[in-house]
Design a protein around this nucleic acid. Structure first.
Lengths: 116, 116
DNA sequence: GCAATACTTAAGTACATGCTTAACAGTCAG
DNA sequence: CTGACTGTTAAGCATGTACTTAAGTATTGC
């Protein structure tokens, strides 16, 4: 791998941790400060900040510091990218299933005609 | 974290690697043997098997050995679970945006009435 | 100014991940 | 039976991840 991380790598990696997902869920309900994000999590503040950095690197979250408080907000476009990837795979798979169904149906018809 | 991995952790973790995603993409086009999955990847067979184990642990892929060849197939229900999680967050966020829009519109009306 | 607030930085630790090579094991064709 | 084919197991290594504590730095309220 050696640090050639694609956007999807960073995105899914960011979502692959329950603490980070709970931060995302919190942010879906509106912006929050670092302390607010940390409150429900059983870990030190620096740990939360590190998770936040992962989320920012993935593009899922953006933050801005005003005075002494850093306010974090979710970045929905990034969420959509991950959703799209998964959705497309699933569509492709379902398309294949349709083809398979058609193939089997055709086979069934042939069998009917050939071996009555 | 300490090994208490939820289904979503395993799922997103599995998708957070380009090699594994390419294996998933390959499997969306139909079942494949381990060697077939390995062919386009620039790594040893054991490495591919390890990725396969991650995919199986996540529920994204299932495999069965017949004779000396192990055939792998995608498990679409698992894909749908990941898609659903993301989709729900996005819906929640969009709902919030709607509320915000309504709020701002209302504020605008009030301002119009109050400061003409 | 001074102390509390809200982070930030640095350093260290334990464990997980993504590979590798080497050696092994079951299956099938001739 | 033998040898090629397809995978499996084991061991090891370099790097990455998820924390920790301790010590710092701006901001802000009094």
């Amino acid at each position: 791998m050696l640090n050639s991380q694609s956007a999807l790598d960073l995105m899914f990696q960011a979502l692959a941790d329950a603490s980070r997902r709970s931060m995302v869920e919190r942010l879906c309900r509106g912006p929050a400060s670092v302390s607010e994000l940390a409150a429900p999590l059983a870990m030190s503040l620096p740990a939360v900040v590190q998770h936040l950095q992962v989320l920012e690197a993935s593009g899922l979250v953006r933050s801005e510091k005003v005075g002494r408080v850093r306010t974090c907000a979710i970045q929905p476009a990034a969420l959509r990218a991950a959703e799209t990837w998964i959705h497309e795979r699933r569509l492709f798979w379902e398309h294949r299933l349709d083809q398979l169904g058609a193939f089997l149906a055709e086979q069934g018809d042939e069998d009917k005609g050939r071996t009555p």
